[in-house]
């Protein structure tokens, strides 16, 4: 899928540009975005190091594990591949909590920590597990309770009640998260995907 989408964006882009005369813009966009990608990645180093450091303390103090065990009864249906007492569950919970509170710069390092913990129990390191995809599905469905930056834009644009969008946003988010969970659970059963599940032979990872 990623191969076709990635190649598709490039192939369609270049062909269309040949007809629309946007070839120079395409050249600049490709080079500029490559540079932006590096800027973004390198810009993450500081905040990433800070949070991974704090999270290491949390892990060694047993906070991550405790948090995971606390919510495990609810979450083990969503993430059946995570063994008991494994820090992956706690890291996932921290990421989702940070996202809900709108703490974007803490959420990303916590999410990456969760992915690293999930990778720890993944026997095929180049292939995504069902639990990783469930986690990312929930993540990309956006679980923000209060969209702070959007509210700020509405305020600037002169809205008299910028917070009126919180309710509708929450409803739309709840539906999209539900769709993500159902989609992940349904698609992982398709032969195409179940046959490539790295945990297909393991107990507990369906």
């Amino acid at each position: 899928m990623i191969n076709f989408i990635w190649a598709g964006l490039i192939i369609i882009g270049v062909i269309v540009a040949a007809f629309t005369g946007n070839m120079e813009a395409v050249t600049n966009a490709a080079i500029d975005n490559a540079k932006t990608a590096v800027d973004i990645s390198l810009g993450l180093i500081g905040v990433m190091a800070m949070w991974l450091g704090i999270l290491k303390i949390a892990e060694e103090a047993g906070i991550v594990e405790k948090l995971g065990n606390l919510l495990r009864p609810i979450l083990k249906k969503l993430f059946p591949g995570i063994p008991e007492n494994h820090p992956a569950m706690g890291a996932i919970i921290m990421n989702v909590a940070a996202n809900m509170l709108g703490l974007g710069n803490a959420a990303t390092p916590m999410g990456i920590k969760a992915m690293q913990e999930l990778q720890d129990i993944n026997p095929e390191k180049d292939t995504a597990t069902d639990d990783m995809i469930m986690f990312l599905g929930i993540n990309t469905s956006s679980v923000t309770l209060i969209p702070i930056s959007t509210i700020a834009i509405l305020t600037t644009a002169g809205s008299l009640s910028p917070t009126e969008i919180i309710g509708p946003t929450l409803v739309a988010t709840l539906v999209s998260t539900t769709v993500a969970i159902i989609a992940a659970k349904t698609l992982q059963k398709l032969p195409k995907y179940s046959s490539t599940n790295p945990l297909r032979n393991a107990k507990g990872g369906n």
């Binding site: 180049d126 292939t127 469905s141 956006s142 989609a183």
Partner: peptide, 23 residues
């Protein structure tokens, strides 16, 4: 996926896009 070097993403994109479409 980049942070852990996973390239075979299986159904991750369909799930993400369906969630976006629903939103």
């Amino acid at each position: 996926f980049g942070s852990i070097g996973v390239t075979k993403q299986r159904h991750a994109i369909p799930v993400g896009l369906l969630a976006d479409l629903a939103g």
